[in-house]
Amino acid sequence: MGRFADALAASTAGRGRPYEHVHHAYFYILPGFIVYFVFVLIPIVNTVRYSLTEWTGFTAPQYIGLANYERLLEDGRFWNALGNNAFFVIFYTILPIMLGLFLTSLMARGNLRGMVIFRTGLFVPQVMSAVVVGIIWRWIFDYRGPLNAFLRDIGLGAAVKPWLGDFTWAPYAAGIVGSWVEYGLCMVLFIAGVQSISEELYDAAEVDGANAWHQFRHVTLPGLQQQVLVAFVVTFIAALRVFDLVFVLTRGGPGRETQVVSMLIYEEAFEYHRAGYGSAMALVMTVLIVSVSTAVFYAQSRREERENAR
């Protein structure tokens, strides 16, 4: 708000007193706000209301207080699914960011030819529909598919597995696909960030005798702080609300090894017609996502304040 008001004040400077016409601004955001209100705020409020009811989704809801939440606490399927989401955070968030940082550091200094093509290529998995990605990887992981054929060809026949149906390996296989989708996003963010780091900083570091690692640690990484933060939040949210990709790959199987919360919400609300209980699950996930995102941004702004104070 502060920055917005400042900018507004600056733009109206000389045309009367500052802040005089600030209420006009609300008219400008009105169209956007109406859409937001109808399609985001009302549904969220309704989800809160429905989570306190027993409701099929098409008959009159019955108020049952916090019973849905009590049930959630004891629902082993929910905790199992949440655990799987947490596992996917490793593959959707942590791995892509580390991989992205590593590759960016390799490319940061050199002016690679055809960077635009490279960047586009990296971004393709993000643009493709998750269902398409899922079908492609399902084919790759198929027991008679290319991955196992490759393993046999290089003499690793013993490593051949029914990847997506194996109780040990299916979560990793489904996770790797997530990494493949998300690391391109991270890299595009990081490459853009690196290009805005002043060359002088690298030159100065070199003069001081910094090696590649030191340059990465003390120049690249601090310069990419904002980008890493954005990448973290975006991919973290993706990991917690993943549905389509896992649904196409494994349907949550084998057993319940890759079942995620979104799948449970869908099943409860639309297949078993327990929309109230589904709403409660959805709300818990929303609170979880919002609080982690807020905490990350809060920590970041605190750090910025400290640094600015120095």
Partner: peptide
């Protein structure tokens, strides 16, 4: 089938 856990219905 060997590897049945990794085979889908319509395709494999």
């Amino acid at each position: 089938s060997p590897g049945f856990a990794g085979m889908d219905y319509d395709g494999a």
